[in-house]
Design a protein around this nucleic acid. Sequence first.
DNA 1: TCCTCCTTGTGATAATTCTAACATATATTG
DNA 2: CAATATATGTTAGAATTATCACAAGGAGGA
Lengths: 214, 214
Amino acid sequence: MKKVKIPEATIARLSVYSRFLNRMEKNGVDTVSSGEIAKGTASNSAQVRKDFAYFGGFGKRGVGYDVIDLNRNIKEILGLNKEWRAIIVGMGNLGKALAYYHGFSTRGFKIMGLFDNDPQKIGEKIDTLTVQDDQVMEKFLDNNEIDIMILTLPAEYTQAVVDRVEGKGIKGILNFAPTVIHASEGTQIRNVDLAVHLEVMSYNLTHSINKEQE
Amino acid sequence: MKKVKIPEATIARLSVYSRFLNRMEKNGVDTVSSGEIAKGTASNSAQVRKDFAYFGGFGKRGVGYDVIDLNRNIKEILGLNKEWRAIIVGMGNLGKALAYYHGFSTRGFKIMGLFDNDPQKIGEKIDTLTVQDDQVMEKFLDNNEIDIMILTLPAEYTQAVVDRVEGKGIKGILNFAPTVIHASEGTQIRNVDLAVHLEVMSYNLTHSINKEQE
DNA sequence: TCCTCCTTGTGATAATTCTAACATATATTG
DNA sequence: CAATATATGTTAGAATTATCACAAGGAGGA
């Protein structure tokens, strides 16, 4: 629908800005400048303004941005004014960590179900949820409207799980396994590979690349 | 030292390629083409070849790439031929998950110590390690050569920890807290914000952006 | 050996993304 | 009410990154 294509990097930064603004809100700050946002998020002021400009003007010249107002706008842009309902499949350590992770729930992502195929894990209580047998996952998806599936299982099992939920209303898949998965047209897939970060760091350290964080 | 600046995106992709090559190695495949690598890593063949070209020619025209040879080359480029020694500070769920995470150890990142300030957590055994009181962290760093510090603690505590390890030989910091941290010149800082991925997905779903994964 | 097929490596081109600079708008002060 | 200081919004330009297209190298078969 949008005329101009918005860089994904801009979207990612909006997400970071928003978390910074949350902190400002909590601290009772009511106005910030693009420069302050930049400093708090390892960006630069021109970038910050440019990012906002894609969506219109949120600030007042000579003054800055109203923290609450700006944050509300960003959240709306990001689609965080609705509640997203997710399940986590694979209750290994990472799955558990994400199930407990408050950084998701406080941003509008509600974990509705946890699944695993390991009898030892099934029945285990994690926060307010109980790990379910992954055999009942399809039925669960029929009875509950779930938007997002978070995959935290070994690479070799991921595609099978994706195939099983085909047509069950899952709109997005966040895949932590280091493997490419295929889903039907229109299902949003995002791969998160935690090792990449360490390996890029390894590269930078090895070649003494000083990435300034200013 | 390098003449041409290599895109960070290239480095990140090399990391992904390498994991794909690991799998090929395990499957006994001995030659792959750029097209096959592309298919297995959600990239495209020209991109793959270009990425390699920054570092020289690893393949044979008409044939492809020797899996083992290419993988060794990539790992060397990434600096993974040495062992990186790391500690994790903050033994919440994410910290624990990373402590258990084999995706790090199998890539040459050895977790040497775990720290927390919660008496309940101190002494807890995680895999082969025991959580230590974070008060002894400085002494631990004096006695052990540690390259990397992984931070998985609440945003408000991160900077204090970073300040405490100043001058203790830490070369890189992988920060999972959603806040900017400052370290001395030359210390590599990488921020990983898990919520960003979900929020970008939220944006894409909200604006029905179909990112093809081909 | 020659011919065909295949896949790399690369130079040119296109697209994207970031940076810089400045004109415009707002608040404040005297 | 004018002058000044401040910070936004935006346009133009620079830099980076990705894509394309093809020439060149190598393998294998006739």
